Amino acid sequence: MAEPRCKPDFSHERAAWAAGEVPVAGADEVGRGPLAGPVVACAVVLDPERVPEGLDDSKRLSAAQRERLFEVICATAEVSLAFAPPARIDTHNIRQATLWALARATAGLPRAPRLVLVDGNDLPPVGCAARAIIGGDGLVASIAAASIVAKVTRDRLMASLGVAHPGYGFERHMGYGTREHQAALAELGVCRHHRTSFAPIRARMLPAE
């Protein structure tokens, strides 16, 4: 029988607090892969006395669970968001745009963190100590909280783009390159929220031979 999967906990943050690295933030982003919409980055400083129950990698939670936790996190923690729009992604590339957004989210926190725990293996220029943790959104409570807030925020934004640009189905596929999205691109063409540096979008913009 497989071992039960561990849920994110506050142990990384408690170790940082014990070492005098206060406050400690968790940072994560959502939206690197889609063909449309921004990358949304979030930084969160959790209150050690009010760590929300049920935190997990946002991808492992239902939409209802994410919405509930979003409200709890925003009510009990220090939260900052930043957005890298398609224009920045197309100008600077997806990696640089993502790191920029993570740095902006961290800089927007009410208190400057002494340590930032970041999901993945790439560190943004946050101006303080930082630690990359692969799979951090499934291990570290603060990173999991950041992933949830970023995911809910981006989903809500893409739903609003679905209303503003009917026919693309943004509210369902969130900008990812699904069959529905590809069919809509074939019928409607590219809109200003698409990432023109991404190959499937760039191909749609080339003149027919």
Rank of each mutant, 00 (worst) to 15 (best):
D122Y: 11
V116I: 08
D155Q: 03
E171M: 12
H92R: 00
R88H: 01
A150K: 07
R156M: 01
V163W: 00
L161V: 10
A132N: 02
N93L: 05
R104W: 04
H193W: 13
P85V: 08
A145W: 06
L102D: 01
G108W: 04
G189K: 02
E180G: 15
V79I: 01
P110S: 06
Y176N: 15
F198H: 06
V116A: 05
V140E: 05
A132S: 12
A146Q: 11
G135P: 05
L157V: 03
A141V: 04
G189R: 07
A184S: 14
I89L: 10
F83N: 09
V116K: 09
A183H: 13
I94P: 08
R114F: 02
E171W: 08
Y176L: 14
V126L: 04
T106G: 11
H181M: 13
E78M: 13
A77E: 05
A112C: 11
T153A: 00
I133N: 10
G138F: 04
V140I: 15
A87M: 09
S160G: 01
E171N: 10
A87L: 10
L139H: 14
A132Q: 04
G169Q: 11
D90W: 01
A184V: 13
R195A: 00
I134Y: 05
P166V: 01
S80Y: 08
A82M: 02
G120F: 04
L157N: 06
I143V: 09
G175Y: 13
S147C: 07
D90F: 04
A184T: 12
I89N: 07
P200D: 05
A101T: 10
T76W: 03
A87C: 02
R104L: 08
R131E: 12
A105D: 04
A103F: 08
A184N: 12
T178N: 08
D119N: 11
A97K: 07
A112Q: 14
K151C: 06
H173D: 09
L123A: 15
T106I: 14
A77H: 10
A186V: 09
R131F: 00
A130P: 10
R156V: 03
T76V: 15
S160I: 00
P125A: 15
N121P: 02
G175P: 14
G177M: 05
A77C: 12
G127W: 09
T76C: 09
P85K: 00
A183V: 11
S160T: 05
P85S: 06
V163F: 00
L188T: 07
A82P: 04
V163M: 01
A146P: 08
L188Q: 08
V118A: 11
D122V: 15
N121D: 14
H173Q: 10
A129C: 10
A84C: 07
P124E: 09
E187M: 03
S147K: 07
V149P: 02
T76S: 14
F83C: 11
I148E: 12
C191M: 07
R111F: 00
E171C: 09
A87F: 02
G120S: 12
A141N: 01
D122H: 14
L161Q: 07
L188E: 04
A112W: 05
D122Q: 13
G108T: 06
M174K: 15
G108N: 03
L185Q: 06
P124H: 12
D119T: 07
A150M: 11
C191K: 06
R88P: 06
D90G: 00
A112G: 02
L81C: 03
G138W: 11
Q182K: 14
I148L: 12
T91E: 15
S80H: 06
A132P: 10
